[in-house]
Design a protein around this nucleic acid. Structure first.
Lengths: 198, 198, 198, 198
DNA sequence: TATGAATGAGATTTCATTCAT
DNA sequence: GATGAATGAAATCTCATTCAT
């Protein structure tokens, strides 16, 4: 259950999530987070050096919860079903970690450090997708001239940016899916056809 | 050639482009833009009320240069060639107006006003793509159950976010194309297969 | 005694009184008040949003000290004695709250909000005087054709503006009374004769 | 008819009157006056060193039009009629020179120089009234113990401040007269009774 | 561990005023 | 004589961060 201190650190991170989600990482002020946590601003500094460190801590929690827990099947193969399932997992993960994933995107627009962090997280996914693409190329389902990493990056962008706009932005504009399933179905459809899967 | 005043307004916008590109819209200070323009900060305020207005003015220039000059073919149809050409146009436009297009993305993360503006610009493209998708659905090349706007939004995200990362970010991470052509080819390949073209 | 914070808020108001009195509300800068309070300018903003809010707070203190503590005798009648006493009370109040009362006058010349506030404070006095005038009209001591509010406003102006010039202005010009009593006596004399008392 | 230059100077003063009346002297900016005059700000500086000098020039025009043109009857005596007429003249003068007279009041709250100027103008009136009071004291109509200057200053305040509030302030508050005549009648009534006239 | 209070450092913004033409 | 354009010099205000308790 953790010491008092660990509890407080968690309390602060939870407050930060709330504030980041509500106001955006860039608009969030330390005092807002402190208010949300019901603590004095000074208390935050007993746990985190600054707002950046709070986001970093949140991202570490995210990484240990998501990436480290195993990317099963490093040499995996896409089937219609596994693809849909992979996209659904991504969608749900983005939903669950919205403040972290939108936050890092915004932080990256201001600090190179977070751009690097973002690109590293992204790299995991891109590499995995690229692996699948290579398989498909061997199978003759994807043009062998394609650089699998470039293709993977592009596909990743479709997924990531759709999640960003559809889940993260209050005003997502035209073309917003009516349900999680519609989103996942549409993305799966486009993606599977692009990769020549069934 | 314009009056001195018009020249100065232009000078400021050009300086802002440079600074936005170098430091990012959010990091740019009025002082930086003034320095880049070789003017006093006070001078900027004779032309623009604040940094937001500079970006707005830049976006208006962009709109009058790009969107107003006609989206030819409102009921157009995708062929392999027209698709590649459309993607190439997008790519080149993004390249040319990088500070504006990255700028509005960043500004949107902080001010709702710019999120709206971004979504409006995006809407033009999404609608156009959706029109093409509808045609393909009628031709039986795309699943009629798909909402064409949702699909168009997802495809647009692939394009837009790939440009953002590959062109806009100094550290674009893994999977970066080696040339403009590779980028355009890869995007065209994925997109055309997703839409069942050829 | 109040918390440290309350003390500081009070300290700032006291400093503001001093500075307003010395330099005038309009000339006073936040820095001056901060210096006078022995605080950093930033500290002031932890307590008041701006100079206007400081004056507002001072006026609220004034109102709770003066107006709220009861205008006894709402249907009161003027006698020589009660009139002199009323004028003396006004004089002493103006003396005591000089920074507030001169301050609101000056602030009113620049911001409509303070003009309204001033007029509201004035209204209390004018209504009270008008009530007395009505009584005198019924007693046949004042011309019944007179609008009691107009007359009350004029009499109030005599009192108020005399206080403003004699107490508030360092250079009060010619005709300044030599003592508080002379001021009160003269005003009482003119006022009582104007109203036909005694 | 004047040279071009004199015409422009006049144009600027006229514009300043308009702006002072609309926005108040303190809120008026040089550029506002320039705009109103249809001239460049730089042009104003060819004629006046700053806003203060414009007001000064306006006040000189006022003085030459009003005070210099003779204060008839330096040893004059008040009768009911002459008193009403004197008050009516003051009222009309205040009406006519509202921007100047309200302007100097406001300027005085910020610069001592204008407080002095105001007091000097006021002195002319106070001295005249005091002269009348002395006569009335000799006639036994006013208490000889009264300092005639103090009484004159108080009476002057009634007149001046009533004009200021009733004519000058857009929100004059309660007790505003319905017409010029009502204002003049009320002031005359109070004043004449205060001085024991008739 | 927690915090109320305070502040340094800086960016934005305003406006009177000047200057080159 | 007139002006478009530019700017120096402030004042306001914000916020992350620290410190004494």
């Amino acid at each position: 259950m953790g010491t008092k201190g660990q509890q407080t650190a968690q309390l602060i991170k939870t407050a930060a999530r709330t504030v980041f989600k509500r106001d955006g990482y860039l608009n969030a002020r330390m005092t807002d987070i402190a208010d949300e946590a019901g603590k004095s601003p000074a208390t935050l500094y007993n746990y985190f050096d600054n707002k950046r460190e709070i986001l970093h801590a949140m991202l570490e929690d995210f990484l240990s919860r998501v990436l480290d827990q195993g990317n099963p099947d490093p040499q995996g193969v896409y089937t219609s079903e596994s693809l849909r399932s992979a996209i659904a997992v991504f969608w749900r993960t983005y939903t669950e970690f919205l403040p972290e994933l939108v936050g890092i995107t915004h932080a990256a627009s201001v600090e190179d450090e977070f751009l690097q962090a973002w690109m590293q997280i992204r790299e995991v996914g891109v590499k995995q997708i690229a692996g699948r693409v290579k398989v498909l190329q061997r199978q003759g389902l994807v043009d062998p001239k394609l650089d699998p990493y470039v293709a993977a990056s592009a596909l990743s962008s479709m997924l990531e940016h759709s999640c960003y706009l559809w889940l993260g932005m209050d005003a997502g504009g035209i073309g917003r899916p009516g349900s999680d399933d519609e989103a996942i179905d549409t993305l799966t459809y486009l993606w599977s056809r692009a990769l020549g899967i069934e």
